Simulated assay, not measured.
Amino acid sequence: MGFEFFKKKEDVKKGPVREWVDAIVFAVIAATLIRWAFMEAFTIPTPSMENSLLVGDFLFVSKINYGPRTPKTPLQIPLTHAKIWGTDAPSYSDAIQLPQFRFPGFGSVERNDVVVFNYPPEFEHPVDLKTHYIKRCVAISGDTLEVRDSQVYINGEKGENPENMQFGYQIATDQAINERVFKKNGVWDVREVNGGYFVHARPEDAKKFESLDFVKEVVRFKEPESYINHRIFPDATMFPWNADFFGPLVIPAEGMTIKIDSLTLAKYGSTIRDYEGLENVSTADGKLVIDGKELNEYTFQQNYYFMMGDNRHNSEDSRFWGFVPEDHVVGEASFIWLSIDPNESFLGKIRWSRLFNGID
């Protein structure tokens, strides 16, 4: 009498459909994990970082440099952002919102890093699904920032200027300038105006136009110190600043305590109200009231940063909408993997010289 102690289970062969489904599921999970924890691809849609980054640059952003954030909005279609591809339909549900934490990274945000972050004043989406912006960090938490005659100063010292920083220039001429002439001289951001052209260019590139016979003069644009830009952060009625003459302003740091009065609330009231994770906050009448209790001082709960575009006269940045909270920081721009010129024909669209360039 024989006994069969073990019976080998026969392998069930997967059909082609099952194999495809398994492969797709695995690929989506792997891509989602890589995108969340290590690296994510972005494209440059606007000229605010020219000439450092050009419209049509495709770049990879490192999540591990500053540490990846845990998802705040878990109910989301994988590999989407706020909307389903090609539609205005939301790709997520905010029925569940989790506390957000950041894993340790290789370092923290430093001055002159090129940083991708969620656009702070976009309040219609959760933090992790706000629109992505890319700017250069010019001041970190605890710094005192000032802009004098377009030059950034940090803690009283002249800040480091990006190599490809641009400003606005008026090119006075009564003749049409061919687009090829602008590109030949390193100018991409051009607008025709009465009496010539308004361009955004590096100082050395703008100077090249002075030698052209048909150019009368090249004048750098500057907002006069006396000019009050009413769109400027934090409050033009109390701080009569503009994009070229701004500050001084202290960047909030975790653990920094401020006395509460009408002046400090004008500077920091919206930051406390909108980004510190508090509820029932009032900053009316020069008073800070949280959960019905009036406070005479306040201690910040996280670090903040001040971001500016390298294209200094064509950038919506912290000068206009304020600080970037640490929990809005996505990652550091690493390198360009593809660059496509939207204004060129099919054969000339790829900017070969920019491929795999690092970002400084």
Rank of each mutant, 00 (worst) to 15 (best):
Gly2Ala: 12
Phe3Gln: 13
Glu4Trp: 10
Phe6His: 11
Phe6Pro: 00
Val12Thr: 14
Arg18Ala: 15
Ala27Cys: 07
Ala31Thr: 12
Leu33Val: 14
Arg35Val: 08
Ala37Gln: 09
Glu40Tyr: 12
Thr43Leu: 14
Pro47Glu: 04
Met49Val: 05
Leu53Val: 03
Val55Thr: 13
Phe60Ser: 01
Ser62His: 07
Ile64Asn: 02
Gly67Ile: 02
Pro68Val: 03
Pro68Thr: 03
Arg69Ile: 06
Leu75Asp: 04
Gly86Asn: 14
Pro104Trp: 11
Gly105Leu: 04
Gly105Ala: 03
Phe106Trp: 15
Asp113Leu: 04
Asn118Ala: 11
Pro120Ser: 04
Pro121Ser: 07
His125Phe: 15
Pro126Ala: 01
Ile134Phe: 07
Val138Trp: 11
Ala139Phe: 09
Gln151Trp: 10
Pro162Asp: 09
Met165Gly: 06
Gln175Glu: 15
Ile177His: 01
Ile177Met: 00
Lys184Cys: 01
Asn185Gln: 08
Glu192His: 05
Asn194Cys: 00
Gly196Gln: 03
Gly196His: 01
Val199Pro: 00
His200Trp: 10
Arg220Thr: 00
Phe221Gly: 04
Tyr227Val: 03
Tyr227Thr: 06
Ile232Gln: 07
Ile232Cys: 06
Phe233Val: 04
Pro234Gly: 06
Pro234Ile: 04
Trp241Cys: 03
Phe246Thr: 02
Gly247Glu: 07
Val250Phe: 10
Ile258Arg: 01
Thr264Ala: 04
Ile272Ala: 00
Arg273Ser: 14
Tyr275Glu: 05
Gly277Tyr: 08
Gly277Met: 02
Ser282Val: 09
Leu288Trp: 11
Gly292Glu: 05
Glu294Met: 09
Leu295Trp: 09
Glu297Val: 00
Met307Glu: 05
Asp317Met: 04
Arg319Asp: 10
Asp327Leu: 02
Ser334His: 10
Phe335Asn: 05
Ile350Pro: 08
Gly358Leu: 15
